[in-house]
């Protein structure tokens, strides 16, 4: 009689939670001063616990967060991928120009150097901006999309206020048949709602096992529910 187990023994370390990178690119230019940057900070503070809650609903997935800020230059606000359980929000301040191209280029570079492969979940990238890029956005987008992970990512853009470069945000989203549109945040409650949705809905959709031909269509349906403005006050 053999003592050998009838199935392979799984060695420690052979199984692993899949990582889901959530990256924010946040506009901190001069036009964000005052109510807008305060609302953005409030929105991030409110969204992170909700993201944690979504992550806890999907314990097989390890959600990691990184934050890029851009004003006259683009630089990491939270540069190491940080487990959502350990995230503490540090307020952003505003001033300067809008180096969005450099921000996207750096994110593409970071994605290239991150762990990748078919078993890793596609990242979620949230871009929020209230203006027009002041650096070379074409070069930035080109470098961003040269990363396979950036192309595979779920990309959500939030247009803050009414003077936003929607064309650039749509190029960033590059949604098939333009099914996903930039979210519009024309006042503080809308911004909070949009950041919360952009943080949690794609993570929920991405971290649940879906293996479907088209993950974006479900998100697009979900996003339509956000369209009604929640306040008459407009930036």
């Amino acid at each position: 009689m053999s003592e050998r187990p009838p199935v392979p023994v799984i060695t420690p370390g052979a199984l692993a939670r899949r990582r889901l990178h959530v990256m924010f690119a946040l506009d901190c230019s001069g036009s964000m001063r005052g109510d807008r940057i305060a609302s953005l900070n409030y929105a991030m503070r409110s969204a992170l616990p909700e993201l944690l809650s979504v992550a806890e609903d999907n314990p097989e997935v390890q959600v990691m967060v990184q934050v890029m800020r851009f004003d006259t230059v683009a630089r990491w606000h939270i540069d190491e991928p940080t487990p959502i359980e350990e995230m503490e929000w540090i307020d952003l301040d505003a001033g300067g120009e809008t180096a969005m191209g450099s921000a996207l280029a750096q994110i593409g570079e970071a994605l290239d150097s991150a762990e990748a492969g078919p078993r890793q979940l596609p990242p979620v990238i949230v871009l929020a901006s209230d203006g027009y890029p002041t650096d070379d956005i074409d070069a930035g987008l080109e470098q961003f999309f040269s990363s396979a992970a950036a192309t595979a990512a779920t990309r959500i853009a939030i247009a803050i206020g009414s003077n936003t470069d929607l064309d650039t945000l749509e190029r960033f989203m590059n949604s098939p048949e333009a099914r996903l549109k930039p979210l519009r945040a024309n006042n503080a409650p809308d911004l909070v709602k949009s950041i919360k949705w952009a943080t949690t809905a794609p993570v929920k959709a991405t971290s649940s096992p879906t293996n479907a031909p088209d993950v974006a269509s479900q998100l697009a349906l979900n996003a339509e529910q956000l369209e009604a403005p929640s306040s008459e006050v407009v930036w």
């Binding site: 050998r4 187990p5 009838p6 199935v7 799984i10 199984l15 314990p59 097989e60 997935v61 096992p209």
Partner: peptide, 23 residues
């Protein structure tokens, strides 16, 4: 080895794989 024993043990093995990996 007894193939049937392997098949009988598969559901628990698959559960272990799913619970600790993909979900």
């Amino acid at each position: 080895e007894d193939l049937q024993a392997t098949i009988n043990a598969l559901p628990d093995w698959l559960r272990q794989v799913s619970d600790n990996g993909s979900g």
